[in-house]
Simulated scan of single mutants.
Amino acid sequence: MSTIVSFKNVQKTYDGENLVVKNLNLEIREGEFLTMLGPSGSGKTTCLMMLAGFETATHGEILLQSKPINRIPPERRNIGMVFQNYALFPHKSVAENLAFPLRVRKMAKDEIARKVKRALSMVNMDKFANRMPGQLSGGQQQRVAVARALVFEPALVLMDEPLGALDKQLREQMQYEIKQIHEQSGLTVVYVTHDQSEAMTMSDRIAVFNNGVIQQLASPSELYEKPENAFVARFIGESNELKGTISSIDGAARCKVKLDGGHDISASAGPSIREMGLASVSLRPERIVVGEAARACDNVFNGGVKDLIYYGDHLRVVMQVCGRNDFIVKLPNDGAARQLRIGDSVNVGWMADACRALQ
């Protein structure tokens, strides 16, 4: 798969002292859906704005289809953009909003009509061509914004928190629709969000940002199953984090960790585990076994049930385990789980491969 965008040693500072983006090297593949994910202030939106041309890199170079674009203005980059606030012209109809970027490009009237019709069809808004934006719901306005970004058939589409203003149900529906449009069109999409579930649902790859640096770039499943550091483990999904010290290393795959409370556990070794020293162990709540079945696990401890929270499809159990009072276990809502009571003392276990030691 060829590369469509390259960031080469890109830096960005607004005050000349503090780097918002630090030595970014990133290649985006043609046709992929890549998400820049991270907390507020992590540098993800700044990267998107530099790619769009609304911000200028302080250092380094950005290439689009192998051509440097640092000095090319936004309107000449052939990039579609979808914003959170839709940015539709309120005095123009839906069709006129879509026609605007085509008129700017001086296309013929019949070609404009054909492209507008095709773009509206892609987002199932054919019947709303003559409506004004104020007559549409939030979800419909967002579909129009997506259609406008697609209408001139750009090389690349950028989306900056496009679903942030929608309610949960509509947001999930739009996630599916945007992903479907991506798959059907073959476009390259670069998407920015701070919502990890949104990123996991939609992306081919995710670049996890923190403090202006990509902490890990990988598929959703690899980020979840094999985080490379403690930040990624905390930020992607939910995780119990146990602090301790590496006591032994068994090749490149396994290690022993002595927890701060004195307990010993076996864990898979993250890529940063190369020597003895402080470490944190990441353990997903759904990988934990409770009751008699826990005895067959590599790591077995006694746990006290402190709270039970009913979520419908699963029970969230707050336990006291290994000196932690906020140890979380997720259990399927079956007969065995429903027998637990607050105050119970039970076996708690997990396999070594279910937890990951990170430094």
Rank of each mutant, 00 (worst) to 15 (best):
N130A: 07
R234Q: 15
R77N: 01
K12F: 05
G134Q: 06
R103H: 12
G304H: 14
D353Y: 02
I214P: 09
S272K: 12
V300G: 07
A357Q: 01
R274E: 07
T13I: 08
L158I: 03
V157D: 09
L283D: 01
S93F: 02
Q140C: 05
N130K: 03
M36F: 15
R29H: 02
E75Y: 05
Q175S: 08
G237Q: 07
N70G: 10
F83N: 05
I79C: 12
L19S: 00
M125A: 14
H59F: 09
K226G: 01
A207T: 10
G335H: 01
A108R: 15
S203M: 11
N347C: 06
D313W: 10
F235W: 07
D126N: 15
R284F: 01
V189T: 07
R274V: 08
V190A: 07
P285I: 09
G312D: 11
S272H: 03
H194D: 08
W350Q: 03
P285V: 10
R274Q: 14
P285H: 13
L24D: 12
V289D: 00
G139H: 02
Q65D: 14
F301S: 06
A293M: 13
G31K: 11
L166P: 06
A267Y: 06
L37V: 10
N130F: 05
T201M: 14
K127N: 13
N25F: 13
A293C: 11
V281T: 07
A336C: 10
S121N: 09
T45P: 02
I28S: 01
V189S: 05
A207V: 06
V305R: 00
V290F: 03
G134D: 03
V281F: 09
T188K: 04
K226V: 06
L358K: 03
A279R: 05
H91K: 12
F209E: 10
T201H: 15
F152D: 04
Y224F: 14
Y191F: 12
S6P: 08
K44S: 04
F231D: 05
D264K: 07
L308D: 12
R287Q: 15
A57V: 04
D334Q: 13
L170V: 15
N302R: 13
E238S: 14
A279Y: 08
N78R: 10
N23A: 10
R148D: 09
G134M: 00
K258M: 12
V257S: 11
L150G: 04
A207N: 13
E286G: 05
D264P: 05
M132K: 08
D264S: 10
K44L: 03
V82P: 03
L26N: 08
K306M: 13
H194Q: 14
C355F: 05
F327Y: 05
R29F: 07
G291A: 03
